[in-house]
Amino acid sequence: MQSKKKLFALIGFVPIFMFGFAFAMVPLYGWYCDVAGINNVQSAEREPIPSIKNIEVGHERNIKIEFDATLHESVEGIVSEFRSLTPSITLSPGDVHSLVYRVKNISSNPLVTQAVPSITPWWGGEHFKKIECFCFEQQTLAPGEEKEMGLQFYVHPDIPENIKTLTLSYTLMAASEMTKSASL
């Protein structure tokens, strides 16, 4: 009989201890995570996020950018006057520049368009950085609407020395044409 009560008292300590253990976890958990660094996904194991370096504007040289515009056959006779208001500019690498393309829907139907860019020479393309561009999204034109669409960009100073001129060419197409070619 005595040993029954002894054993009861002995085992009885376990739940009391474990109840305390739960509360002990509050400081221990924080301490353990700090020491082992396991609850900190950001700093412990991920590669540090590369910081964005400020770009030096290279005034020592200039690059000429030409702005071209072409109509795809899907919008021929529907759109007129797709062109840049500035045919070309000359700027230093690192300078941020904005300009506007104009487009007019001459049909009596609403039109959803998509502009597809292309850069020549192609190896200069990766240094031509668009900050904002009407080609990022589809553009909707009401019947007869004339619209000015913005473009903001800079040329990265890393652009090879031998490139003196970049040509940016937009082809404007009906968005329905895009989905058609995508489903092919």
Binding site: V14, P15, M18, F19, G20, A22, F23
Partner: peptide, 13 residues
């Protein structure tokens, strides 16, 4: 005996 007190502790908190 080991785990029920931990739940009891957690809900007490």
């Amino acid at each position: 005996v080991l785990i029920m007190p931990v739940l009891a502790g957690a809900v007490t908190m």
